[in-house]
Design a protein around this nucleic acid. Structure first.
Lengths: 347, 347
DNA sequence: CTGAAAGCGCTTACAG
DNA sequence: CTGAAAGCGCTTACAG
């Protein structure tokens, strides 16, 4: 006995199933006495409508899929926080599709995972292929992207290049001239482009100041704290380390700070480090960063999706950036001769 | 046209829908030629079975709910990582039910959220009420708890009191005698008991050594970094601060380390800090902690649930604990007179 | 205002 | 091996 059905309730109340359905759905076309009687029967039988049957009948599942690299990118979790609240408030269930490896994207999305089961889909830091987008459109499943773009889909983005420029200006204003960059591999299987755009903006602004990054100071590794740390350590231990590092994510910036500690460089006195994103860890590691509104982007993405679900045509939005200074960057050290300080000449 | 249906495929292949269903479900009772023909039609029409219809027909939704305080407890995310992989591998969708406030637990669980829509439920750091448990049992929905207990349900737990004892022994062995505790409010709306059990084990072991915690050094606050930091600051700034602090979670331990920095105490020289859980942040803040296997507990919980879903009777498990020493604890300082060092007598 | 019936898209005995 | 039919539990025109 897996619970009462609408038929049992109808029988108990002495009405037709249609009438029970009407009171369930708040139809005004039910007389008050009947309504009461049905409500009483519902309570008496502890009846709860079967959402699966309802979904089959209405064509709406009341579930939204969220496709994201949940466990490799801490920023995703913060975005989820915003989305989860909005979705739950609107009565939607949130189904997670974790994508950790590029191949998974292919397996999961196009096929059974999304088809027919989700009323809408939120892509976070990931984008559907063109074929998938077409298919989703054909099925009339609204889609919103966060932190990625697509020509035909509403996207919530930031200006990554602009963020890179902001980081450059921040470090230049502190007098730094010997700068390093630590970011993602630019040819990754997910098509992540943020790191490349951030680097481009950064280098562009440096170029305007007549500065370029020495090839040995441009590090690109798979995303993650450990790879960043391991790649930064030799660079920071060398005879001529940079005086400042821009990492294209907080995760990597934290790796750089760990490398600095291992190399015996104090932050920010001997090395300035600035990250990007403003994830929670940036707060308790005291990292200065180019902050983007993570939770807000998730909330906004969910809101847009809800409106699209309601039949509205929605447009994407670009979110603002700001530098949050927590003290991991500082003025470049200058020794008595006025030369730019490096570890080699200090002490 | 929301995609082809089984009827269209049957028509296209010139067979009955039952036959199409049989090839879909790998029934051996289909001749090879028919099978090929049906497969061709499926491909030609780009047909994908509607999971909602299938769910209604079979009574299995192929979805599992995870009920947890996702965004207030970082440990939950690490547990999810383990669970997500196992569930996805078995073809189950993962539906998240975030519970941030005590009242939400009531609204969401018992009612529409879980009823009829989930094949199984994983509770993380949260437990169903007795009424909910009964209801889930009546509906034959298997349940597994992680980090909580219930008399009739399989639970994956740790020995919290034992962990508290381990922390105590660790600090006692380093010579600490003036000890503080920072943990959760013990009367919280969620029924979290870990913090209380950890404190009890800690105090028990101290008592065996003839030591007790001064009331002013026993801090209990809502879970979180900021409340821990704010409550610890005055304690650490006082004339007679403790030489070591046991926090019943890493999150709170990080708050204590922030307070130590604000109070001008160096860790571990002037203050030893040990946490509990071993979340990722413990790694990059260099926190010594009583480590529990978070990801493994999630994976194990998912496995048990899958086995229960397969009809097996499953039993819970107790996970092992170990101290991971990252250098935030050290020997107590002793001044020249041999008295136990405190900030007041040093220098 | 209300009931009977068709329909949502599958699966699965039941006959053949 | 295969088809026709009933059934899963709802919703929603359609008549009255």
């Amino acid at each position: 006995m897996r619970g009462a059905t609408i038929a049992k309730v109808a029988q108990h109340a002495g009405v037709g199933v249609g009438t029970v359905s009407r009171v369930l759905n708040g139809s005004p076309a039910v007389s008050e006495p009947t309504r009461r009687r049905v409500l009483d029967s519902i309570a008496a039988l502890d009846y709860r409508p079967n959402p699966v049957a309802r979904a089959l009948s209405t064509g709406r599942t009341m579930a939204v899929g969220v496709v994201a690299p949940f466990f490799t990118q801490p920023s995703v979790v913060e975005r989820m926080r915003g989305a989860s609240h909005a979705l739950a408030g609107a009565g939607y269930q949130l189904v997670v599709f974790d994508v950790e490896r590029p191949e998974q994207a292919r397996e999961r999305l196009g096929s059974r995972a999304l088809g027919g089961r989700m009323d809408g889909v939120l892509f976070v830091s990931l984008a559907p292929t063109d074929a998938e987008a077409t298919q989703l459109e054909a099925a009339h499943v609204p889609v919103v992207l966060i932190d990625r773009t697509h020509p035909r889909l509403p996207c919530i983005t930031i200006d990554d290049a602009q963020g890179g420029r902001m980081a450059a200006r921040h470090l230049l204003a502190l007098g730094h001239r010997r700068l390093a960059f630590v970011g993602d591999l630019e040819d990754n299987g997910f098509g992540f482009e943020s790191s490349a755009r951030r680097r481009e903006g950064f280098e562009e602004e440096l170029a305007a100041a007549g500065i370029s990054i020495a090839p040995s100071l441009r590090i690109q590794r798979p995303h993650g704290r450990a790879p960043a740390r391991e790649a930064a350590l030799p660079m920071l231990s060398a005879a001529d380390p940079p005086t400042a590092v821009f990492a294209s994510s907080d995760v990597q910036a934290i790796g750089v700070m760990e490398a600095a500690q291992a190399a015996g460089l104090t932050v920010p006195e001997e090395l300035s480090v600035i990250g990007f994103d403003n994830v929670e860890a940036a707060e308790y590691t005291g990292l200065t960063t180019v902050a983007q509104p993570l939770e807000e982007s998730g909330a906004l993405g969910a809101e847009l999706l809800l409106r699209a679900l309601g039949g509205e045509a929605v447009a994407g939005r670009r979110m603002p950036l700001e530098i949050v200074d927590r003290g991991s960057t500082g003025p470049v050290r200058v020794d008595r001769d006025g030369a730019l300080g490096t570890r080699a000449v200090q002490c």
